[in-house]
Design a protein around this nucleic acid. Structure first.
Ligand SMILES: [Mn+2]
Ligand SMILES: [Mn+2]
Ligand SMILES: [Zn+2]
Ligand SMILES: [Zn+2]
Lengths: 143, 143
DNA sequence: TAAGATTATGAAAATGAAATTCAAAAGCAA
DNA sequence: TTGCTTTTGAATTTCATTTTCATAATCTTA
């Protein structure tokens, strides 16, 4: 799975005429080693731990490339930090966001997805993407 | 409807021990006169047009109060600007956002709302709020 | 493989939205 | 009014992100 993603990025880079750099390889490795929903700052700190020379700007730029390449998805919750999550081929999910402990629970609901398509159809709207975020308290934080 | 909202805000202010100020009255009047989904800057400019003395900070602070009072809702789309929309008592809706012309189409779907509750229940999650935004192209921008 | 052309990088500066500071002004209870 | 408290607005600060630009790395071609 990690190899697939590396390959996917090489192909994307080749297609776009991007050069292959040590930094991009490192950032990709570290991104792939993280769990879901990393903020740019978190990832930057991880990168810096083993590769102090790599700068903020490169991490920002590279994560945007990953998103463009389809292996990461940018998510904006309500904390002013952009996060990136891993995109598995063909998979989509939405989020339950706990405002108590910041946990993020993922879910999928085919019916909701279908209803969205119907709504779009009804308005002559062409869907490019969507986000559904449910904010509240997770089971732990309720009790 | 405008009077109701003004009254609602007075009550909220009274309850919170807030003072009644000329600025808040003006900003409320102008907010109520706008259409849906105003950015803070847009509102600030409108306010400044007739009342040049009123500052940015007051507009920011006051809109937060409106949200707290329940007569406005903060919405964060993907353009880095906080917007506020009018909240009608007991009403809820979600958004189709056109990335072509920035139009925002509102919709309600009871089934989606119900399904969200079921998902939350399944995860022991207590819903406080949610947002569903569908991004894409509106009918005009498609053709 | 060396040169030349182009792209990528990183430190620092710039940006832009939002929050904060603080002295002055306004509101309020008595 | 008086005196106390809240609010205001200009300016400053903050913070995430973007941009700039000189330097470095990569790729292409000979
Ligand atoms: Mn996720
Ligand atoms: Mn709306
Ligand atoms: Zn929690
Ligand atoms: Zn449009």
């Amino acid at each position: 799975m990690i190899l697939e993603k590396k390959k996917a990025f090489s192909e994307f880079a080749a297609n776009k005429g991007l050069r292959s750099t040590r930094q991009r390889d490192i950032i990709l490795d570290i991104f792939l080693s993280t769990h879901q929903h990393v903020s740019v700052e978190e990832l930057y700190l991880k990168v810096k731990a083993s590769h102090p020379g790599i700068g903020h700007a490169t991490v920002y730029r590279t994560l945007k490339l990953f998103a463009e390449a389809g292996l990461a998805r940018e998510i904006l919750l309500h904390d002013g930090q952009t996060r990136y999550e891993h995109v598995l081929a063909g998979e989509h999910h939405d989020h339950l966001v706990c405002t108590g402990c910041n946990a993020i629970i993922e879910f999928e609901d085919e019916t909701i997805e279908k209803l969205q398509k119907e709504i779009a159809l009804r308005h002559g709207f062409l869907i490019r993407s969507h986000k559904l975020e449910i904010y509240g308290l997770c089971a732990c934080c309720r009790s």
